[in-house]
Amino acid sequence: MNSAKSKLAGTPTGYKIFAVVILILLAIFFIFPLYWIITGSFKDAITINARTPQWFPLSPTMENYVKLFKQPAMVWLLNTVIMAVGAMVLTCLTASLAGYALAKKRFYGRGILFSIIICAMALPKQVIVIPLLQEMNVISLSNTLWAVILPTVGWPFGVFLMKQFSETIPTEILEAARVDGAGELRTFFSVVFPMIKPGVGALAIFTFVNCWNDYFLQLIMLTSRTSWTLPLGIARLQGEMSNDFGLIMAGATLAAIPIVAVFLAFQKYFTQGIAMGAVKG
C-alpha cells in the first residue's frame, strides 16, 4: 500500500481516485457482515441451505423470529439491557465524581493514585475474570447480573476519561462558586456536572456498548439459561443447533440492532470521547 502511495504521490488526483475506490470497496466489505446477518434472519431454511447464495431475501419469512422467541430470548434481551444500563449509570456517576477530584483537588496520594489507575488500564482485562469468578463465588454474586456490572464499573478507564474532561473546567469558576458559599456537592452538581456533560455522554455510550458486547465476562459469570444475555444466548444457540443459520442470524440481529442504533444515534459523542481518552501526550 505504501509503494502505491509513493508512486502516485506525484499525481494527487490519480492517487485520490485510487484511495476513494479502495475506501468504497472496504466500506462494502465492512458493512457486508451486518447486511448478511439481517437479511439472513429473514431467509427460510431452504434458501439458507441452497448451494447458490441469494443476495436479497426474495420471499422474506418471520419463521426464524418465531423460533427465536420460543427460546427465552425476551429474558436475554431484558437481562442485557438491565446489565448495560446499570453499568452505564453507575460508571458515569462514580467516574465523574472521581475524575473531578483527581483533576481539580490537591490532596495527599494524588500522584500515586493516578499512576495506579494508569497501570491498571494497561493490564489485560480478561486475566482478572477467572479470579473474579472465585471472588463472586465467595460473596455469592456469581450467576447474577451484578457479577458483570460491578467489575465493569470498577474498570478505571472511566475515571481517566472524566479526569481528562474535568481538567478543562476553569479553576476560577470553582473558586467563584466557593466564594458564593456553595458546598462541595452543590458545586459538583450545579457547576461541574453541566460542564462535563459531553464527556459523561461519551462515557455513557462507551460503557453501554462495551458492557453489552463483553462476551468473555458474561460467559464466565452467567451460567444458568435464564440469567444469560443476548450474546451468550446466541453463542449457545450456535453450539446447540450449529446448522440452523436462520435462527442464529435472527438472534444476532436482535443483539446487534439495538446497540448499532444507539451507536449511530450518539456517534458524535462516542468518537469525541474515544479521542479524548487517548490525548495524554
Binding site: L26, A27, F30, I31, P33, L34, W36, I37, G40, V209, W212, N213, Y215, P231, L232, I234, A235, Q238, I248, M249, G251, A252, T253, A255, A256, I259, V260, F263, Q267, T271
Partner: peptide, 16 residues
Amino acid sequence: VFYLPVVTGSVAVTVV
C-alpha cells in the same frame, strides 16, 4: 463503517 464490526459485537460478527 469501520467502527461497525466493533459495535455489532464479537458474537454476532463471529456467527455470521
